[in-house]
Design a protein around this nucleic acid. Structure first.
Length: 528
RNA sequence: GGUGCUAUCGUCUAGGGGUCUAGGACAACGGCCUCUCACGCCGUAAACCGGGGUUCGAAUCCCCGUAGCACUACCA
């Protein structure tokens, strides 16, 4: 029986959504869309101690910005005229919707109780009273201590205690956990869509904690399996860090009797640090000067601020394209993909097995590519946002059409909109100083004299356009045999302040006659 | 330490026994374009971790080693 494809992205609200998590979400989304399936967003907040306020909203906003749509669960917005079940936001938390809710694990306590009991009753789990301190002591005392078939009979649990004692302890309020009872010496096979068959012997697995009475919440493993089953998830696409616990999950499905509908697994390669070794982390971003989060995040818990791709000037389609290729490659050599093309061409069997070092330089290139698709008018608001306050007025004075034109002129030379100001400031603000290197190379002894002559010529031109200026100036240079490069480069320095920028008549067009002459005059005076 | 995963240019990767004197992209370098700087275009340099097998033939399959990574919590 073919089931409808259903995948989920299930982050933990412990801070900003890491860029690796974004890629996981993207791959899930692409897979769902390609198969006409559903993409769910579930919040795994079973660790109350690590909850960070705002993280959930952040995740939703990030996915929205990137165009990763959610069909069911948290952050799912009702469509016009929708007849589906919608739950009202809880205490200002984001809206959730779908037939398998709630989609926040902290709101599913009762559901988990039922399944914990099922495992307890079927003998697949037991209650353990060992305190975290006692376990810690045990680990210090015995190297490689593991709570499993070899050791569980020496511990304080319902296997070693009488029924009365267990009941008494619970009755008097002793904190306990429920542990999964793993039968030793069994080869557990996990079929991974990316890696193939992975076999692990159950003896190396420990009796994982499934539920803790202290906060009346299950742990990841239990909640994950129960939810994926109840939510009819067909494919679990997640990071490679979960591969070692996949056999445990298989065992859990088996214990519940859900093996028939167990989802298929695909463990994605990790995103690694660009330099050195290890997994890409938040600190690498700070250290190497690039964002590791999609959006800027203000952590209310520890007061830190992390930079984001959006605020750094990245276009969402560039981030998507860049991330898609970090671990996946099309059958062809194509590298530029729209979301639609990714949906059409993505496939799990073309996902690489090895970790990918995060190549920030290539990300810049992607942004450059996508930036060229936008017109100056479209980029205008972003450009204006990057203009320093003290120059705002001078820029606005030019009018939107001229500013948009300048952006069109300059956008091909930058990777990001915010960089545009550095490149284009001279259009709006006269050079305060002249670049030493440019001067040395392009400002010659005869330059002041040339510029004085040029000033006189330009002053007499009334038709201030590129064609006329070019014709008259070139004729003058040719007649005097001054050399085009010599004159034009000096002229450029007077207008720009350095030997760079677009074609000179583009500059004079934007500046206008009056400003052009003013800058020429200033330079003649200062560089004579 | 244990277990698992992985291993092609600096980086992301193509490659799934002969078409590989190993292809593409980023970055680097050089050239062209040109009034400058960029963009763009063209080009150069740059890799199959090591050792054994299997085979007529191995980057491709197997084994061993080595290295990297992940996991090894009442975190996810």
């Amino acid at each position: 029986m073919e089931r409808k494809v259903r995948v989920r992205f299930a982050p933990s609200p412990t801070g900003a959504l890491h860029i690796g998590g974004v890629r996981t979400a993207l791959y899930n989304y692409l897979f769902a869309r390609q198969h006409g399936g559903d993409m769910l967003l579930r919040i795994e907040d079973t660790d109350s101690a690590r909850f960070v306020p705002g993280a959930e909203e952040y995740i939703i906003e990030a996915l929205q910005w990137l165009g990763i749509g959610i069909d069911e669960g948290i952050g799912c917005q009702p469509a016009e005229g929708s007849t589906r079940e919608w739950e009202q936001p809880k205490e200002g938390l984001p809206m959730q919707a779908g037939p398998h809710g709630p989609y926040r694990q902290s709101e599913r306590r009762e559901i988990y109780h039922q399944y914990v009991d099922q495992l307890l009753n079927s003998g697949h789990a037991y209650i353990a009273f060992d305190t975290p301190e006692e376990l810690e002591a045990k680990r210090n005392e015995i190297s490689n201590f593991q709570y499993d078939a070899r050791t569980r009979m020496q511990m304080v649990n319902s296997l070693t205690l009488s029924k009365e004692e267990v009941d008494a302890r619970i009755a008097r309020g002793d904190k306990y956990v429920v542990r999964f009872k793993i039968e030793p010496n069994e080869d557990v096979h996990v079929h991974d869509l990316i890696r193939g068959e992975v076999v692990i012997n159950s003896s190396i697995l420990d009796d994982k904690v499934l539920y803790k009475s202290a906060d009346d919440l299950p742990t990841y493993h239990l909640a994950n399996i129960v939810d994926d089953h109840l939510m009819e998830v067909t494919h679990v696409i997640r990071g490679e860090e979960w591969l070692p616990s996949a056999p445990l999950h298989v065992l859990l499905y088996r214990a519940f009797g859900w093996e028939e509908t167990m989802p298929q697994f695909a463990h994605l390669p990790l995103l690694l640090k660009p330099d050195g070794n290890g997994k890409l982390s938040k600190r690498d971003g700070d250290r190497l000067g690039f964002p590791v989060f999609p959006l800027e995040f203000h952590n209310q818990k520890d007061g830190t601020v992390s930079s984001g791709y959006r605020e750094s000037g990245y276009l969402p389609e560039a981030v998507i394209n860049f991330l898609a290729l970090l671990g996946w490659h099309a059958a062809s050599d194509q590298e530029i993909f729209s979301m639609q093309e990714l949906i059409e061409q993505f496939s799990l069997d073309r996902v690489s097995k090895s970790g990918a070092k995060f190549d920030y330089e290539k990300g810049k290139w992607f942004n450059h590519q996508y930036l060229q698709n936008y017109t100056g008018a479209q980029l205008l608001p972003q450009f204006l946002a990057a203009v320093p306050a003290e120059h705002k007025e001078a820029v606005l004075e030019k009018g939107e059409n001229v500013i948009a034109h300048v952006i069109d002129l300059m956008k091909e030379r930058v990777n990001f909109v915010p960089e545009l100001w550095d490149q284009a400031a001279f259009f709006f603000v006269a050079p305060a100083a002249y670049d030493e290197k440019s001067l040395k190379k392009r400002w010659k002894e005869e330059s002041p004299a040339h510029m004085r002559e040029l000033y006189a010529i330009l002053e007499g031109i009334n038709e201030w356009n590129a064609e006329t200026l070019d014709k008259i100036v070139m004729e003058w240079i040719a007649q005097k045999e001054y050399g085009v490069g010599l004159v034009m480069n000096a002229f450029r320095i007077t207008l720009v302040g350095a030997a760079r920028g677009p074609h000179i008549w583009e500059i004079t067009n934007v500046l206008g006659k009056e400003e052009t002459l003013r800058r020429l005059q200033t330079a003649i005076e200062r560089l004579a």
